[in-house]
């Protein structure tokens, strides 16, 4: 198993140079059956990451570019009357895929956003009174542009909470960028990527995540982190129980990626900025800064 995981990470690393940490986070998010929100400027490799993940994991992949005039039917699908058969037939929308890249999700109207977010949560779609299961596994990787917020619909906190993680890729290092210039075109590389795992394998990995052991000492630490987020005067809103659970799941996936059967405090700390950053709120201060302070303030061993 461990070999497969490192192969996956290595494969994506060929396409997305120097972003091993983010790649692992994205993988951990998928292994923990969560959805991923990537917040970054255009051209930083958001789409590449999503595409590469789909390729390597052998998942069916759809991409939707969100615009302000988009309607829920454009994502979910629509029933169309077919003259040949004299019946309505349902044409599945792009949401019926195993990995959906929702590009610039904040460009569309709240109505459309909520349709997608509902599908993310329920993993099923109800159209014309009929409930349709989405394929299994089902991942959504949504991206949004933090700048140029005019004409966008900011995702409300309740919607943000649906995403297990929010990451940003950031500029590559000098070496990585030089390698990018010198190496093969990433698009070519991307096309050459072969699936390293099948659906069964992926499900196996997901069930392994749930078996990662979390000891009492670690849960104490998790509790202290959560309590700190709720009691600290810096945070206006603390971590919800769902947030705390998300933290635990993501940390398990992270531990599995690193080949451990038990959780270490490092795992929590590694995923904490991505998991808690968009869930914490405060006046004026960014959530990830709060998380950073929290990590320094909360003692790992004793209260």
């Amino acid at each position: 198993m461990q070999k497969i995981i490192s192969a996956i990470v290595a494969d994506i690393g060929k396409v997305l140079l120097g972003k091993e940490h983010q790649v692992k986070l994205a993988l951990a998010c998928l292994l923990a059956r969560g959805h991923l929100l990537i917040e970054d400027l255009p051209g930083m490799g958001k789409t590449t990451l999503a595409h590469a993940l789909a390729q390597v994991l052998g998942l069916s992949y759809n991409r939707v570019q969100f615009t302000s005039d988009m309607l829920p039917a454009d994502i979910l699908g629509v029933s169309i009357f077919e003259r040949d058969s004299g019946q309505f037939r349902f044409h599945e929308g792009p949401v019926f895929s195993q990995l959906l890249l929702a590009d610039e999700i904040n460009r569309s109207s709240p109505k459309t956003q909520s349709a997608l977010l509902e599908a993310m949560e329920e993993r099923q779609v109800s159209i014309d009174g009929e409930t349709r299961q989405l394929p299994e596994p089902f991942f959504v990787i949504a991206t949004q542009n933090p700048l140029q917020q005019s004409g966008t619909f900011v995702l409300p906190e309740s919607q943000l909470d649906r995403f297990l993680m929010r990451i940003s890729l950031g500029y590559p290092t000098r070496e990585a960028e030089r390698a990018l210039f010198q190496g093969v075109d990433p698009r070519v590389q991307l096309a050459q990527l072969k699936p390293r795992i099948n659906i069964e394998g992926l499900k196996k990995l997901q069930s392994l995540v749930r078996q990662v052991k979390a000891s009492d000492s670690l849960l104490d630490y998790l509790e202290r982190l959560v309590q700190h987020s709720r009691q600290s005067p810096e945070c206006a809103v603390g971590l919800s129980p769902r947030g705390a659970l998300a933290l635990l799941h993501a940390a398990r996936a992270w531990a599995l990626i690193h080949g451990r059967g038990h959780l270490l405090p490092e795992d929590l700390q590694a995923v904490l900025p991505s998991v808690a950053g968009h869930r914490l709120q405060s006046d004026g201060v960014d959530g990830s800064q709060l998380v950073e302070r929290m990590v320094h303030q909360v003692d790992i061993i004793a209260a």
Partner: peptide, 9 residues
């Protein structure tokens, strides 16, 4: 050890 420093670090 700093409070937030993991044993490994």
């Amino acid at each position: 050890r700093n409070p937030g420093e993991t044993p490994g670090e």
